[in-house]
Design a protein around this nucleic acid. Structure first.
Lengths: 341, 341
DNA sequence: AATTCTTGCTTCATCGATTGAGCAAGATTG
DNA sequence: CAATCTTGCTCAATCGATGAAGCAAGAATT
């Protein structure tokens, strides 16, 4: 590649001049439908050679402006600070590329304003479809997309206006709660009501998990008091603060806890360490989400691992089927066998 | 927003017709330089109202095709599966947006082929600057960018052809090694050579960290044998396998280990659990990278936390200064105080 | 030999936004 | 009252790639 140094990028017109042909021939050759356009093999090879020599790169903006489909697929995601969303993003990129789509992803920090701005920007970039992952206001995004004639889908948190793919939070939480209660019985000799901590009471997933949490208690004949439910938000500090406040009012904290995300678990673990319970083997924990190090924390913490490849497979099935009606697909999470306490 | 349902997107021509004015007036109003173009306040307000009513969204492709600068900044990143890269991506998006740039990020899974393809695609999208994070072949990417007249920078791993911002791996590793050795002396009563595990012997960071590792041993008068250095790759399975192999040949494994990333630490911890050493308090570990749960693993694992905001501040300083010459900026990592064993 | 077919191109309008140049009407100046 | 200035717009070329339509030259058919 002995390309010429230049300020302006090489265009098909430059290549056409160098090859002594027309820009449309160059275009046809480089975008692969030169057979259909009856360009001779000789000319095609010459053009490809020259394009290579000049280090030609397509101007996607010009190309997209002309084409009917952009092949761009967008995703907004709340955070990159845990394995769940990291895995969603990585899998999404992979599956999008495998389908000839160009993924663009942006992180909106659970900020409704940022979500709307990000969606608007993605629409400007002519995305063909926008996946709103864990959005605080998914319906707002669906409306914006609909106004622009663009497909949208919800992932992780459901919306009322577009198809949604989410974990089966109820069943997952019920099973997780059951396991924590069983562990608690085994280790403490009795079954006491657990503490639910983390998440937003207003979001669908948290609500469903609380429902599963309640149902598991009921199934096992354990009564849960309202004040055992602390949907204090997602940030670690919030969980830490919520526990502090509980402890301050002199309440005895339950020995068993259902923690609503790894991020909340960070706060819980910090509090546990701070309050000197780190080596307290009578603490029985479970976490709705998976992290490799949590397995090794050594308290036999139960985890629910959301089935990210399964969920994204459903997402792409929905995209390919062209479905637009609001419906909620629930994907069962994986509950790995825990390795002794 | 009572926009009309339509298949085609609304353009400035549609708005012009609705407002009884010209497309150029609409364009001027919507991109904000209508004062400069002497459009009256009345017309401007009318246009903005109609645009809002119609749910107009700019066609970025058309806009970018015409404009000289794209304001798009690209980043390629190896993985999203650890806090270091997650934090890089989140901070990068934030800082880019704060500067009026549109960040596009893609994950290349440490695959040289994918890196090149991703870089080519980003060039097609007219990025103004491309940050190659932890690239396996950064110079290849710099060459591609240079051929297209596009700036490029290296982050995390340095290259020879473009400015690079990296951690001070040598100093960080030396200090980390020192701390592990001191801990090991305290807990075992003697200072034995550590095992270095993880990373690629061929990459600059691993090489520098090994140099720091050696220097710390030398400073404290401890001899390290060559076979104590296992640069076995980044994946957890590779670390696990490397330890298995060491154990198989009957070698006694050192009680102290310098683990080259959290990802390798996953493998190490798995091996430790599998081999029944999980509660072995005589194991003394340190990890070059930070993860909130590792703090809580309970073996007093020392960590080096790379200064992501510091590094990205340098990156944007370089971008704004217009620097193009290859140079390496080393940012000192943060070494938090560890909380008792 | 005249007609039709095939091959291998070129020409030109187009996508939507941007912007320099230009123009008409009214205000101001000499 | 003519000349100049200001205001508030419109016109039209342009960015680079695309593809329908067209055209010239040679091959095949009648």
């Amino acid at each position: 590649m002995n390309q010429v140094k230049q300020t302006k990028r090489t265009t098909i017109y430059d290549l056409a001049e160098l090859a002594g042909t027309s820009a449309s021939a160059v275009s046809a050759v480089l975008n692969g439908n030169w057979k259909k356009r009856r360009i001779s093999v000789q000319l095609a090879e010459k053009i490809m050679r020259i394009a290579d020599e000049q280090g030609y790169a397509l101007n996607m903006q010009a190309s997209l402006l002309r084409r009917e489909k952009s092949h761009i697929i967008g995703m907004i995601v709340p955070k990159y600070d845990n394995r769940y969303f990291g895995s969603i993003v990585e899998t999404f990129e992979d599956m999008a590329r495998a389908r000839g789509l160009f993924p663009i992803i942006t992180c909106t920090r659970r900020d409704p304003q940022l979500e709307v701005e990000a969606a608007r920007t993605m629409l400007s970039y002519q995305v063909e479809c926008l996946i709103a992952t864990g959005a605080t206001d998914p319906d707002r995004i669906t409306e914006m997309c609909a106004a622009a004639g663009v497909r949208s889908l919800n992932l992780d948190l459901p919306g009322a206006l577009a198809p949604s793919v989410i974990s089966d939070n109820f069943a997952g939480a019920r099973e997780l709660t059951r396991r924590i209660l069983k562990n608690s019985e085994q280790r403490l000799g009795k079954m006491e009501p657990l503490l639910f901590i983390g998440g937003r009471g207003s979001d669908h997933n948290t609500a469903e998990r609380i429902r599963g949490f309640r149902e598991a208690h009921a199934d096992l004949g354990v009564a849960v008091h309202e004040e055992n439910i602390l949907a204090c938000g997602y940030a670690p500090e919030k969980a830490e603060k919520a526990l502090d406040e509980r402890a301050l009012v002199g309440k005895i904290l339950p020995k068993g806890m259902f923690v609503n995300s790894t991020i909340s678990l960070e706060g819980v673990m910090r509090w546990i360490r701070r309050s000197g319970h780190l080596d307290d083997r009578s603490l029985v924990l479970g976490c709705f989400d998976w992290d490799p190090f949590v397995t090794l924390l050594g308290n036999g913490i139960e985890m629910v691992r959301q089935d990210v490849p399964g969920m994204l497979t459903k997402v792409f099935e929905l995209i390919e089927s062209g479905a637009n009606k609001p419906l909620v697909i629930q994907v069962p999470p994986l509950i790995p066998e825990v390795q002794g306490p």
